[in-house]
């Protein structure tokens, strides 16, 4: 009963209070590298969410079997397994997306969000809440990634999801380049800190 009630609480935790990207500052590499277009961001978010849910679920199921001493190695193997699966599935069924994400799909293995959730949540909690935690953290990651990607795609390429927006007006290419990635992410985190500060001040 309690678990059903708390889905919203989970969602709020994953998306707002403990957003993996904007608040916990984890998983910076994929956030920067795959946010040049919204489509890439959504693809990356979906892939990472899939891995998060599966690895959290399995690690939680095995939490009493995996020996404490080699737990990190075991987690990495499990995560790498799921990453390889999603990599192969994407190559087979969405080759264009798989191509544009390239190297960053196998690199989900070393995305700190996934290992962090495995270590700090899934290894201590029951399977169902762990899977839920994976799902909500994944949503939080995807939303953060999409925010950055929306700004970068509109400013950097003048398009959104590939549709032309400004009818031929030259876009600010800078935002599609690596430098723009750092800049946009920096301003987003500053905004989050500003909002958090103001909220704290009101109390």
């Amino acid at each position: 009963m309690k678990e059903r009630v708390s889905f919203l609480a989970f969602l709020k935790n994953g998306v707002i209070d403990n957003n993996p990207t904007f608040v916990q500052l984890l998983g910076m590499c994929p956030t920067l590298a795959t946010s040049t277009s919204l489509l890439n961001a959504l693809g990356m978010g979906a892939a990472a969410t899939f891995v998060l849910i599966c690895s959290n679920l399995v690690i939680s199921l095995l939490r009493k079997i995996i020996p404490q001493k080699v737990r990190i190695a075991a987690y990495i193997v499990i995560i790498a397994g799921f990453v390889t699966m999603i990599d192969l599935l994407m190559q087979a069924f969405v080759p264009a997306l798989s191509n544009s994400l390239g190297l960053f799909i196998p690199l989900i293995v070393v995305n700190c969000i996934i290992l962090a959730r495995a270590e700090s949540y899934a290894s201590k909690n029951k399977p169902l809440p762990s899977a839920l935690d994976g799902l909500t953290m994944g949503i939080g990651f995807t939303l953060a990634l999409s925010c950055v990607a929306t700004v970068r795609e509109i400013l950097g390429s003048g398009t959104i999801l590939g549709f032309e927006l400004f009818g031929g007006v030259a876009p600010l290419t800078l935002f599609a380049l690596p430098a723009g990635g750092f800049l946009v992410l920096g301003f987003f985190i500053a905004l989050v800190q500003f909002l958090k500060d103001r909220k704290g001040g009101e109390k």
């Binding site: 992410l185 920096g186 301003f187 500053a190 800190q193 500060d197």
Partner: peptide, 11 residues
Amino acid sequence: KAFQGFPIALV
């Protein structure tokens, strides 16, 4: 204040 720490590092 909002930029202290991480954001200014990113900029």
